[in-house]
Design a binder for these strands. Structure first.
Lengths: 316, 316
DNA sequence: AAAATAGTGTCTGTCAGACAGTATATC
DNA sequence: GATATACTGTCTGACAGACACTATTTT
């Protein structure tokens, strides 16, 4: 008897011995207590506010460019627990499915995008994080062009909205005692949606404790306050944003996933600024990304000022 | 009824409504098929070969410094499946335990080290990766000073050994078709232990396919050949080494975990070289790490040449 | 002309790579 | 003095931050 794992042309084989056969006959995975595995995805995008984009031409300042905001997609929970609270899109890993496949499936269900880069962020499995029982959350993040994707239509059971992200940081203590590098930072997260009649504001305060534990690469996150967010998702969102920013500082090319096929350099810069939460100087930015882009020969049209060249992603 | 998650002073509370209570009474997690969760750890160290360290003084070249090698700790499996094959230390996540805690526990069991930084590497949950059933591996890596730790004594059921790591890389194809950035690289892994009577050599060939899938940040790993390694651990080890190297290039300070409290700068440099798999120029290396270290005032002794200053980790 | 954005040139300081050269211990 | 390692000085080129400057379109 031979078992062959076939996913993606995997050529890895395992030949069972007689001993294995006996062992496996007596092995019953059901005997052990096992957790449910959830894949939760922080789906990020950078785009303008709905109402601003509509009223831009009507208002006096037709020349101004619409502001781009860093956004995350959340789902209103229709059922207990945390009914009516907002949560990361996610779902349970089914048998025969890789966790990345679960995440990909959930992403497709919410956004109709069937292939997007998924990055593993962290694993959250604290006892008590989910009142339903032992549920481990494998958290991913993905970057998509939210302006180009249609959210699945809402229903009674189901509602998805983009929330703009504000994350502020406050140093609580900083102690570098003999190579122990401890310290605490408090992050305040504000997620806002103003598409509908009344604005929705979700908030969380999350404290990062460095050196207090040796898990998560020496960092521990603790929820201090939470309003409107389900489960421990406030903590997960803060953690994921920090990781995304770190990765973007390291290699900004992942942000091309946010862009349409053709874009101006100012649009690209606005995307970087929105994600990183700080402004950049145009001259420096252009030098930095020069090797990652290619000219299309086309120009942007219809702006109340000098038109910009349209670029596409280059071959590095 | 209120549930409070208490891990690490967590202040996050959830108040159950009547609706929640009803829902939870009818919710039975057991109804759903669930996987077993394993934490597997790549425990890395940098140190010399056993026999070389013993024979150094006896042989003619007492002046030469012992070579430092990049090593990984593996366990010989005593039971089916993969009996006698070598595997990453690991074990199943127990109820009430966070996966990081599982990893920490396994690390302590093998090395008697009770607190070490753990970094999440990736999640492997392909169907068929474990013949026992649906078992998802959460993979971590840790850096320890293997020279200072005593491995748990071997027994019939159990044997742990350090294997020196050689990882070579061969570009198979490189296609940058219109921003699609595909390509394949084949990695050849050789793990060697020469402590005992006869040398143990484990090998694997793993192919990295970029752009073929959108999971794992756009990279897919496929085992092409495997000799002596259990499960898909060859793939996991290659993936983890690549991640570790990337992280070290980004911020080398994690490598202080490999060092004893006091060390010479050449020792530190050898550790960097062993992990990165390339040599560094001393002058540049010293400038780079200058801000991370502090003098102890002491000097190394007993070498057949100019003695070096002993340093310790600084306060950044 | 005014408004608004598009895009360039250049100075600065920092930092990594390369390499030459000096210092100091043991045998 | 030979050997082996310890450590420093300096040149280079790449690159990031800051800022001044020019260019081009619509209203």
């Amino acid at each position: 008897m031979t078992v062959t794992a076939e996913r993606g042309n995997e050529m890895y084989q395992y030949k069972f011995t007689r001993e294995d056969m006996e062992y496996l006959e007596n092995y019953h995975i059901e005997k052990y207590e096992r957790p449910a595995i959830a894949a939760d995805i922080a789906i990020f995008s950078v785009h303008g506010r709905k109402e601003e984009m509509n009223s831009m031409r009507d208002s006096g300042n037709f020349r101004k460019m619409p502001k781009k905001e860093f956004k995350i997609l959340l789902i209103r929970r229709a059922y207990s627990p945390f009914r009516n609270a907002w949560a990361l899109p996610g779902g349970f890993c089914k048998k025969g499915e890789d966790v990345y496949e679960t995440a990909q499936r959930e992403l497709a269900e919410e956004t109709s995008i069937h292939h997007a880069y998924l990055f593993l962020s962290d694993i959250f499995g604290d006892a008590g994080r989910d009142p339903r029982g032992w549920i481990i959350s494998n958290t991913f993040y993905s970057l998509i062009n939210g302006e180009a994707c249609r959210l699945r239509a809402g229903s009674d059971a189901w509602e998805a909205k983009w929330f703009s992200i504000s994350l502020s940081e406050q140093c609580i203590s900083e102690k570098d005692l003999s190579a122990q590098r401890t310290g605490e930072t408090e992050y305040r997260l504000l997620l806002e949606n103003t598409d509908g009649e009344e604005a929705i504001r979700l908030t969380a305060a999350v404290r990062e404790r460095r050196g207090s534990s040796y898990a998560h690469g020496g960092k521990d996150y603790v929820i201090m306050e939470n309003s409107g967010l389900a489960f421990d998702h406030g903590k997960i969102i803060v953690n994921t944003i920090l990781q995304l920013r770190k990765n973007v500082e390291m290699d900004g090319r992942i942000l091309f996933e946010l862009m349409p096929e053709k874009f101006t350099l100012t649009e690209l810069q606005k995307a970087f600024e929105a994600v990183l939460g700080r402004t950049l100087l145009a001259a420096n930015f252009r030098r930095k990304i020069a090797g990652w882009i290619a000219e299309t020969g086309e120009m942007a049209e219809g702006a109340g000022h000098r038109p910009a060249k349209l670029f596409k992603r280059g071959d590095d």
